[in-house]
Write a protein that binds this DNA or RNA. Structure first.
Lengths: 334, 334
DNA sequence: TGGTTAGCCTAAAACGATTTAGCGAATCAA
DNA sequence: TTGATTCGCTAAATCGTTTTAGGCTAACCA
């Protein structure tokens, strides 16, 4: 059962392929096709259920109405929720999204870029990792719109949408201090991206501004791809060896590991021990006691990304790179 | 900066396009191209960074090495984790996955099928909803491999991979009864798919087999797309008006709403009140007390799906539809 | 010697659309 | 009446591959 081609329609309607193409693409008026022919062809298309072959179309026009989304890990709820929002919004504007995860693997990220490139996606939304600067630069040099989100690569000049990581961190620490906390630990990761270092910097600065000396031994850097049990062990060790009355977790999965660690050593969150997680999570609302978190405004981030992309897509000329820093919300619970 | 085409390579190497194509596709030996030419062309390809245009390739060959994955909602962790696993496994076998969510919307599902069809994906993995039977049947009639997972459509004969929903439910209820529970409620949804009705049936059968009369007023059917607050209110109302000592939640998001409801009315889970959730969730392990759950073996499901797909893809003829029912695991906590 | 075969390579058609250039008839202006 | 313009439509080139069918030379065989 071969699917229909434009030629089949043309034959059935007894007109040329060109005419059918004009009608399909809404250029009938402009090309002065008679009302009668338009009607006839439309009817035949309708009845036969003909759908243009997008591949042929892409080959000819060089674009695809598809936007490629490259993220770290679709099974992380921050990304899957952003993906869903972006998908929705793009869809309403006639674009489809295809997405894939890099797993923080440089080679996989590069391959994905190539995959999308060879599929001629119209634009790229990327949560980047170090090591792909050149590849992204090539995309930009070829005139492709590229938007970074969540993380930025300082060496690549392109638009970026992200939360105000520095201030989010700063505010969290300030709130600990306002509660009278003195020994504030930071659990972070060793992936070297701006977003993570900003969170670290906010922590430092808040301590400094409050006259507290920064103590490197209170900062735990978790290796990115390690087993969760290892992470839990390290957190337990930190709490065992240091006097700590507050912890800021720099990602929600670290906070979850942290909660598991607390459970294992039966340390309670309460007046003398507080934690805040970066990025909210369903589990936090449900936890007893409920866990405070920094919420990134997903909806706004998604909206900003799509707006930037569409601007770039509709204006032929290159637009200057824009940086959108979106404020976060600190939700203090219990 | 136009990207290179096979023609550019041919010109540079001073051979024909055909020769280059043979070499790219590993048919050089078979077509008896001399070692010298192979070397030369490969070197030029290497140096120039030439990548074949996949769109042109797809247009010509009619396939894409892409598998389309259609799910209900990527932001649901069951789906995002399955997606991630499928992606991984497919990737290792040289296939890419593109995915998109239907949001349980029939029109969107149909559009997605069309999108994938017009992009000539090689196979479809679908978590189906009622109302798309015809569209799927057309795919099958055209000879496309289609695998359903998680849910099945009884009217469409194609392969299916899913958990043993009936027994999972049955065992959960049995375990309640073994604990001495008598008034067991079921919180389910009104989406009319086999997977949900099987869970319902397992509940009924287990009660019957234990001589407990099925009471329809203990079964709460939540409307699919409703606001969470509404859901919480309904659950509270059920608990207020009925004597209930155990609840089986038919999906994890319903269980989460349920936990919120319990929190609001300050009802504790303990010896006289138990719950089980269908599909595990990070929040359950962390909750105090920890929440029992039915785990679907995601890894196995993903593996089974990929195996079925690859079989179909490699064997030209149509294979008979297979149904793989994978046992679940009841994890009793605390 | 002449016919086959093998080895090495290529011309051209095909995939299914979009788009440019242009044709013939009808209408219009002068 | 004639030249220009508009109208309604189409032929053919094009996008970048794969693949079929076959050409040319040199070696081989009888």
């Amino acid at each position: 059962m071969k699917s229909l081609s434009i030629k089949d329609i043309a034959v059935k309607a007894n007109v040329s392929i060109t005419t059918v193409s004009f009608i399909i693409n809404g250029k009938a008026k402009e090309k002065s096709i008679s009302e009668a022919v338009i009607e006839k062809v439309k009817k035949i298309i309708e009845e036969s259920g003909y759908k243009p072959n997008q591949i042929a179309r892409s080959l000819r026009t060089g674009n695809s109405n598809i936007i490629g989304l490259i993220i770290e890990d679709i099974s992380n709820s921050f990304f899957s929720r952003i993906a869903r929002l972006i998908e929705d919004k793009a869809y309403k504007r006639g674009y489809k999204i295809i997405y894939s995860s890099t797993e923080n693997n440089i080679d996989k990220a590069k391959e994905l870029i190539n995959l999308f490139k060879s599929r001629k996606v119209d634009a790229y939304i990327i949560s980047p990792i170090k090591g792909i600067e050149e590849d992204v630069q090539m995309l930009l040099d070829d005139g492709n719109p590229v938007i970074f989100f969540d993380r930025n690569l300082p060496d690549v000049k392109t638009s970026y949408v992200g939360a105000d990581h520095f201030n989010a961190s700063y505010q969290s620490i300030q709130s600990f201090i306002d509660q009278g906390k003195k020994n504030i630990a930071l659990v972070t990761t060793d992936i070297n991206v701006a977003q993570i270092t900003e969170r670290h910097d906010g922590y430092k600065k808040a301590l400094e501004d409050n006259g507290i000396v920064y103590d490197d031994s209170l900062v735990l850097k978790i290796h990115f791809n390690q087993e969760e049990n290892e992470t839990i062990a390290q957190i337990k060790s930190l709490l065992a060896h240091k006097k700590v009355d507050a912890v800021l977790f720099v990602t929600n999965y670290l906070a979850i590991s942290g909660l598991k660690a607390l459970k294992q050593i039966d340390k309670k969150i309460g007046d003398d021990f507080a934690i805040i997680a970066y990025d909210d999570h369903e589990a936090f609302e449900l936890h007893t006691p409920r866990i405070s978190a920094i919420q990134q405004p997903l909806e706004e981030i998604a909206e900003a990304i799509i707006k930037l992309i569409l601007n770039r897509l509709s204006s032929k000329g290159k637009l200057p790179a824009e940086e959108l820093i979106i404020p976060t919300r600190l939700v203090l619970r219990d």
